[in-house]
Nucleic acid binder design. Sequence first.
DNA 1: CGAAACGTTGATATCCTTCAACATGAGTGG
DNA 2: CCACTCATGTTGAAGGATATCAACGTTTCG
Lengths: 241, 241
Amino acid sequence: MQTPCRVCPLRSLPAFTKLEAGKVDFIQSLKSNHVYQDAGTWIIHAGQPSELFTLFSGWAARFKTLEDGRRQILNFMLPGDLLGLHASMFADALYDIVALTEVELCLFPRKRIWSLFQEAPELAFDLTWLGARDESLVDDNLLTVGVRSASESIAALILSLYRRADKLGMVNDKTLLFPLTQQHIADALGLSLVHTNKTLNKLRRLGMFDLEHGMLTLRNPHVLARIAKAFDADFAPRPLI
Amino acid sequence: MQTPCRVCPLRSLPAFTKLEAGKVDFIQSLKSNHVYQDAGTWIIHAGQPSELFTLFSGWAARFKTLEDGRRQILNFMLPGDLLGLHASMFADALYDIVALTEVELCLFPRKRIWSLFQEAPELAFDLTWLGARDESLVDDNLLTVGVRSASESIAALILSLYRRADKLGMVNDKTLLFPLTQQHIADALGLSLVHTNKTLNKLRRLGMFDLEHGMLTLRNPHVLARIAKAFDADFAPRPLI
DNA sequence: CGAAACGTTGATATCCTTCAACATGAGTGG
DNA sequence: CCACTCATGTTGAAGGATATCAACGTTTCG
């Protein structure tokens, strides 16, 4: 059961709302397990019933696959994100979630979700809020894939991941551990691998960022934001369940 | 206040779950108004606080716009769909919703959402469930825009709208009132208007469907589904709030 | 040492966009 | 009732962004 939720290191980040100790304890009472998984392993399988998780550490990707194998990454998950909220409300998950790095997961059995609605309406509200935030990330990705060019798309993706990581204290000296391969980026943006590679290098040569050996360094966030035509959609601190 | 919620004609459709009369009355107590709006008018404005609606009749579209004017339709709304759940949980809406036809809306003031969580956990659960279903529609659209070709995209969109409308009893003799312009379709699929037109006509000439004068007739759903590489994601009846 | 995963690069092909023009029908005001 | 405009749909031609194909380099790891 690892660290008790009261002293969860995520919770003390400014990215998350403060919560009374009693409610934190209630969350802990719902948590059934603390799980470790290796990079590349499945967290949620499309077509199968799934539990609800909070990503405690590491990166994950949620995606759908067409019968012919083409795949679309719907969004990337960073620590503090909820995994499988939708999947756990339906009979079966409609998507896969895979670990991109080693991950730690807080496991909340789907059966207990209902008791959360019954006994802790504030937390139920937070859960719904988090689902809404999730969707707004997917909305942004759909906007990107639908209207942005390859350069704009990559700029927007890099920027958005950087900002999210920054709020979680994962950025040091403008640099962050970045586990995505170019294939991941291509699958998230609906681009081919080759074109992703060329566009990535173009932006790199323009001095927008460095990206090698799994390290991303932002060199010119302002111009990158101009290229991306990105908003500054800054979310207030969010609940952590 | 129009028809009382107990005799709501939507609620009796097989597409929706049955609900005890008491809960229906509670929903009605949350409803503050029954609103009519003309085609082309805004229901929710990006950047402004918004209320929560149920679309009682008509079609609507949710979209985001880049500063330079490029727009992406995120999803289309049909009767029974929830409008602005996410918008009403955040300070301001992050997207616009516009009426595509004359619409009737059931208005639920955002202030009352909280009382729903406090006093009716089952309904709060339903609300979250509906939010999850919404996101799964956006997921599907992202999959379409990301990986499908123009023909596949249009096939998938037509099919998905047809199926949703069919469950609502809006289809007669394989035909349904279809208010989308080619520009709407283009904006939803991330395609240019010209290419949308040509692709649409190609599928039409292939005998997949007829589409003129705002009427859509499906001629060959099975082949269309093959072209779309579409799943048969059939949702069970859903709650109506 | 060989294989597998990941990244890189050039050449060629194609899907889709853009530009431009025209057709049609509905609505509006003279 | 006609002329006009505006929204929508249609079509051809040309150009560009991105995909596909193919080959090779590097690193890691068993």
